[in-house]
């Protein structure tokens, strides 16, 4: 085939179009400018139960995305789940006594970590541990407790 001007321009446009599609996918679809998991400082927290929290889950404060869960493991000495998260450098002034809870977005949505600010003058730094934690609400366990309480109550009343 002979390389004509049309071919050159056509291929140029094609490549531009392809790259434009990738850029559109990166920014418009995947939100490249959201908090990344490679920058920011690391914080850990221990939970009794994390429910179905997964790596890459959101870390939110007041509903605003400030970081991501980077790793989940189990500490066999403390019998607790260890959640590592990275918080964006833009949020450097989170009080050290803030508490972390596992929340569920909506009734069936995915789970995320919510931070509630404390009142301390010192701030969370790289490698710090969040002491105050609250476990996930596990539906089965909640139902169990509810039913147990109910039957206990019921058997009481029949006496």
């Amino acid at each position: 085939m002979k390389i004509t001007r049309t071919v050159e321009i056509g291929v140029g446009l094609f490549v531009c179009l392809g790259i434009a599609a990738l850029v559109m996918l990166s920014f418009r679809v995947a939100n490249l400018n959201a908090v990344s998991t490679t920058h920011g400082y690391k914080v850990t927290a221990f939970f009794e139960n994390i429910g179905s929290l997964q790596a890459r889950a959101a870390v939110k404060m007041g509903g605003v995305l400030i970081g991501r869960v980077t790793g989940i493991s189990y500490d066999p000495k403390r019998f607790q789940a260890v959640v590592e998260m990275r918080i964006d450098d833009a949020y450097k002034t989170i009080p050290a006594d803030s508490s972390a809870s596992v929340f569920t977005a909506g009734l069936l949505g995915e789970q995320y970590i919510g931070l509630d600010p404390g009142g301390a003058d010192t701030y969370l730094t790289n490698g710090a541990e969040i002491k105050l934690t609250q476990s996930a609400l596990v539906l089965e366990r909640a139902l169990q407790e509810f039913l147990y309480a109910k039957t206990a109550k019921g058997s009481e009343s029949t006496k």
Binding site: L22, L25, S26, R28, V29, A30, N31, L32, A34, R56, A58, L65
Partner: peptide, 20 residues
């Protein structure tokens, strides 16, 4: 439509692995 998409589609895992 867009915000849910943006919070759930990952650049590396979905677009990098899938499309690229």
């Amino acid at each position: 439509f867009w915000s849910q998409m943006q919070s759930h589609v990952a650049l590396g895992a979905d677009i990098g692995n899938g499309v690229v």
